[in-house]
Design a protein around this nucleic acid. Structure first.
Lengths: 218, 218
DNA sequence: GTCTATAGCATGATAGAC
DNA sequence: GTCTATCATGCTATAGAC
């Protein structure tokens, strides 16, 4: 509403994304989307052909926006860090903070996080691509790091360790509303996420028995 | 189908729960539920009055089944453990293993986990009760433990630490299908969850800088 | 307590004027 | 490219026979 009138197509993707993220594909009608976007229902079919194609378009937009492969990136930027315990701890610290920052900085629309989570819960064809091209390289990078620090670790251990980070991102993407009921309105701000990143980084570094960077001590 | 014919009402709750958990409230029609349960649509209205009341009934069933308040219980069973570092580590170890066991033992239907998660994502009145009566006491118990080990810790730190456990439970409840695509069919069995519980317990104990129980070393 | 039949409505999609 | 008007379908829910 308050935003300047972009072209109808973009506006429809935004409006639809917001609604789909909140109520799921079947929970939203084309009429609701059209009303929110301030256009008529037929505009949806003119621009996208069907409700389903509009959904796919919104999901694709969100997936493209989400980089997410942070371990791989941090290691690529400075591979030498893999060689020493201090370097490995540094990789973890940087990755965790960057992941929380990327996911929860305030200019990322909430719906992009939520619609991705819905895709995870009910995988579709769009999503297999996401898993293969975005997530898998990151898992591989994390595996290399873990094995460098702890040779002979098994796959379950590595997966569980990496999931400490990913599951926390998932939780705050999905359960924000419920957690604010529990912990107070507005309690989940930038400050909160920075505090959480600290704890998660500490836990992951210490689980691997690496030396704690000074700024993460107690 | 394969199960012995219980009474129609129970059968409807099971069938509906399974479908609602997978596709959400709006994603499921009364026709689908009736067909799955092998009865006619009107039976739903006879027994429950409406689709919504059937949904509430399924959700309530799942919430009642889910104990979840494990920290509170473990501490109540042996409050003396709170007094020493070794005891505190023991509380964490026991709670984490018990939580994973309770949530993922094989006689718990998948749909009960999933429908609760959907309740978290889109909180309703049924769910406020769940948060207040089930989750809150557990959070309080965890806070007492954390402060005993690290006096002066702030609320964010405590929340983030407790969420290491809760978020991992959420992840495996929600993303099982997607993760099996990534890690291989059937990879998420009892063995897997035990391995994960080990890593999570290690991470939570070490983040609090408590001594590691011998069976959790390396 | 379970069935058939159907009312009453909202949905996704299309046709055609402008 | 956007509108109005309309279609066919599928939905929840109810009425009434058995």
């Amino acid at each position: 509403m308050a935003e300047a009138k972009k072209n109808t197509k973009e506006h429809l993707i935004d409006s639809a994304g917001e609604l789909f993220a909140q109520d799921g594909f079947e929970g939203v009608s084309t009429r609701m989307i059209a009303e929110k976007a301030g256009v008529k229902v037929s505009a949806i079919h003119y621009h996208f052909g069907s409700k389903e194609k509009l959904y796919t378009e919104s999901l694709t937009r969100a997936v493209e926006y989400d980089s997410c492969a942070d371990f791989a990136m941090v290691i690529a930027e400075n591979p030498a860090l893999l060689e020493t315990p201090v370097g490995r701890a540094e990789i973890i610290r940087t990755t965790v903070f960057r992941t929380f920052y990327d996911n929860f900085r305030e200019d990322t629309p909430d719906w992009m996080r939520q619609i991705i989570v819905q895709g995870i819960m009910k995988p579709s064809s769009v999503f297999s691509d996401f898993l293969e091209t975005v997530l898998k390289p990151d898992v591989d990078a994390a595996r290399r790091l873990y094995l460098a620090a702890r040779p002979g670790a098994d796959e379950v251990q590595i997966a569980a360790w990496l999931d400490i980070l990913h599951s926390q991102i998932l939780l705050y993407s999905v359960a924000k509303e419920a957690l604010e009921v529990l912990r107070g309105e507005g309690s989940m701000d930038t400050e909160f996420y920075r505090g959480v990143a600290r704890v998660v980084a500490r836990a992951m570094i210490l689980e691997l028995e690496l030396p704690l960077p000074v700024d993460l001590e107690q």
